[in-house]
Design a protein around this nucleic acid. Structure first.
Lengths: 232, 232
DNA sequence: GCAAAAGTGTTTGGATTACACCCATGC
DNA sequence: GCATGGGTGTAATCCAAACACTTTTGC
């Protein structure tokens, strides 16, 4: 069988990358959205994303695009699903690959730039209609996040450096839309390398909770020794 | 910031799909490879894959490409990773998305066609150097397969309709490169909806093993009721 | 003292592990 | 009978769930 289409015509696609950035604030997992200054979908909220350059590697492009639109730097991006429905972009065939990252919202300063005129964090369970097929992309990427939360200690990327055990529990409860037993949750995480600080919560009208940090070095050691495997 | 590159120039990529087909034979997980009749990598073994058509959906294209090269039809394909290193294809920028499928080798008849001159099943743990970055693609896709084997009853797609419990155990042992306790393995799978046939193995110089089938309908029911969750 | 949330201990039943043992077939 | 794998039972242990209880803070 031979091609009915000339070889050159195959080179008529475009490829874009979307950076789905997840954070955690006020008990909710939130996603970073930008308001588009250009058509198509001018004025709509969208996941930050743009076309790749000809000689750019995918993950490098994802970082560059995220920086261009939000000024965020040094964020570890992870590949999720690829979307390529022929008519997903009104101006031509654009196949897009979603990347995801988990960040601590308080420790970074996102600023809208390039064609992003505005920027906001929106909780993933209260989303309006987004540009393109971005609702679908978000849903799929959130599923990848949930998978990650079960199998790797990425929850600590979402939390501030110092957090309470109840913060940690609430994060999992929000992510999986369940209620967990406090005592059992604490037993479960006992095997994790956490540092307990002397510091405590302040200005709460109840017993203040202890503050913890995740011991990344110790975690690396445990993994290297092969004794421990994270599982939630 | 504005683009230094004209919009049209972004439409100078090509996009391909690779179909990583896994089977199970002679106690080994095998992958379907084709021998390339064209440059680049003429004569090399490769994962079946080709360029997408302009108006084609990704999964549809993956099925069409698999059919073009191997005559295999009606195979459920599942998206895995996307690979887009700028120089992975010597003739231009080709980003590729890997799909995977699990098949029963004995129940299908793959025939090399189009530019595939030859075809073979090769065990995934004894691979030679493949064309392009296909060794990397295969490794990554095999990881996805292992993930699937843990979380969904896809093992039965690899096995013949009637199989012994030892076949099933050997499959998992090969996939995860471990040795499992027979008695404990059987206890674990007791919760699975298996049909035990009256038939037995033949012409073996030891006690013949009973033959089983996977009860897909019952499995669907169990899942719908939400009582059961597959886990290995 | 009271409300509110932090934090801990105990019991129970089900799953996992290790290991020993019996069974059916061909030769 | 014996070699070869098929197939099962048991006890020890670990783990998860359910739930009750104690502690510390602000007001």
């Amino acid at each position: 069988m031979s091609y009915k289409i000339k070889f050159e015509q195959f080179f008529s696609y475009s490829f874009s990358l979307d950076a789905v950035i997840f954070g955690y604030k006020e008990g909710k997992i939130q996603v970073l959205l930008i308001k588009r200054a250009m058509d198509p979908f001018k004025g709509s909220w969208a996941i930050p994303g743009d076309l790749i350059y000809p000689k750019e590697d995918l993950s490098v492009a994802a970082s560059r695009i995220l920086y261009d639109l939000t000024q965020l730097e040094n964020i570890q991006l992870l590949q999720a699903q690829t979307f390529g429905s022929p008519y997903r972009h009104p101006q031509g065939r654009v196949i897009t690959c979603a990347y995801l990252a988990l960040v601590n919202i308080d420790q970074l300063n996102a600023v809208p730039s390039s064609w992003a005129v505005e920027l906001k964090w929106q909780s993933v369970r209260e989303l309006q209609a987004l540009a393109f097929d971005h609702n679908m992309i978000l849903k799929s990427t959130f599923d990848v996040l949930k998978q990650k939360l079960k199998s790797a200690p990425v929850c600590f990327d979402l939390l501030p450096d110092k957090f309470t055990l109840n913060d940690l529990q609430s994060l999992y409860e929000y992510a999986f839309d369940t209620v967990l037993d406090k005592a059992n949750f604490r037993k479960k995480i006992k095997s994790l390398p956490l540092i307990k600080h002397n510091e405590k919560q302040r200005n709460v009208s109840h017993r203040p909770a202890a503050l913890y940090s995740f011991d990344r070095l110790k975690y690396q050691e445990l993994i290297k020794e092969g004794i421990y495997r994270f599982k939630m």
